[in-house]
Design a protein around this nucleic acid. Structure first.
Lengths: 215, 215
DNA sequence: TGCATAAAGTATCGAGGCGAAACCAATTTG
DNA sequence: CAAATTGGTTTCGCCTCGATACTTTATGCA
């Protein structure tokens, strides 16, 4: 990386700007950075014939648990309409990255799985470069960023009135059933049908990966 | 805020997930969070009849210095094409938020200023809600976030091959002329014409606000 | 000086994303 | 069993944005 950060506050201890001698407004800068990073991340994802929405859907489908891998789940998670997601999903299917199979439990829903091709695509996820960059930072900074960004997102989700974590909040309850489940026990999502999650489900469960807030 | 964050790591000291007992991958989570926050921030900005691009342009125009407030400056900063920006700027002008005045120095360029209406609009900037949320965090976390996100952005900009800071890198040099200026002294941008920045220019100068990396 | 080239902006076109609304099928509820 | 709900899809149209072509002004080179 050749971009040497002339006057960055790498040690994060300084709290006044060497340029102006003025104490910077962290909050404003975070807002600015989030905004710009979002734009760049977006741009980053016009790769391999996919668009950002498709990448995001693919990522979600890759790590959501079995009962969350439906068009509706994607829609909830991405905060988009079902119609829009239907197109996104169709696009991914047309590219051979996912496969739709109708559920036998509820004939309205269709379960989605990544194909081998899809797995291969995920391995080339462009946002992975963010991972590597962050991976190069010290662990403490990374941890604090996770914490701060996570809280920021929870607040924003509330602000926007979107479901805290889409279908994943339900997933969370499954893992901790003693927390109580408001819906009837026949809720088809998230393994709350009583059917125990088998295989890697507990690991790949969406709630842990996608956030840690439970409504 | 009603979203109580069940098992968030608010103290940022825990480094293993209470759910799985597994040490989480901070880097992956940051990537995920950036991605999702970007999407939410985007959505947040469909307000007051503006779209995200228009808000971003308006924000830039609000804080860029005099010589950076041109369509080209916006294009560089936002990483969009001139054609696209021309439309964005036209839209903002049609809404009465900005005013274009041809430069007398170079008849090709047009200087842009926010109108009173534009200032009023900026005061209602929807991303300000991010500011307030972050403002509620402890200063140390906020500072570390600024640091981490700033470095992340610098790296990403390099990755994407975009100008480190658009026209603002030049601004930076103006503020620290001893750092050397590669271009001829007649560069019309950023006050490097030799004409001293007057008034609030040093404060509102873009480089400090928009980043701290100098190529 | 004069011509070629570059640069700033604008206008036009077209592709594509996305929400809205209508719709279908299956399920749940009274 | 009818009515209302829910998961998904389709169609339509708006709007964003990049590509391209074009105009005007600057600059560079002989």
């Amino acid at each position: 990386m050749t971009v040497t950060d002339g006057q960055s506050m790498s040690d994060a201890a300084k709290d006044d700007d060497p340029m102006t001698g003025v104490k910077p407004d962290h909050a404003a800068r975070v807002a600015e950075l989030i905004d710009r990073l979002g734009r760049m991340t977006r741009e980053l994802q016009y790769v391999d014939g996919l668009n950002p929405a498709q990448w995001e859907a693919l990522r979600y489908l890759n790590r959501a648990n079995r009962y969350s891998r439906t068009p509706g789940g994607v829609a909830d998670f991405l905060g988009a309409t079902k119609g829009t997601i239907s197109q996104t999903v169709s696009a991914l299917e047309a590219k051979g990255l996912i496969a739709r199979t109708p559920s036998d439990r509820d004939k309205r829903v269709c379960l989605i799985d990544l194909t081998a091709e899809g797995e291969r695509m995920i391995a080339r996820d462009p946002v992975r470069c963010i991972e590597t960059i962050v991976g190069g930072m010290d662990d403490r900074t990374a941890a604090l960023m996770v914490d701060g960004l996570g809280r920021l997102m929870a607040s924003l989700q509330f602000e926007l009135g979107s479901k805290p974590f889409g279908v994943c909040a339900a997933c969370c309850r499954h893992l901790a059933p003693e927390a109580g489940c408001k819906k009837s026990e026949a809720v088809p999502k998230c393994g709350m049908t009583g059917e125990p999650l088998q295989g890697d489900a507990p690991q790949r469960i969406c709630v842990n990966y996608l956030g840690d807030a439970a409504e």
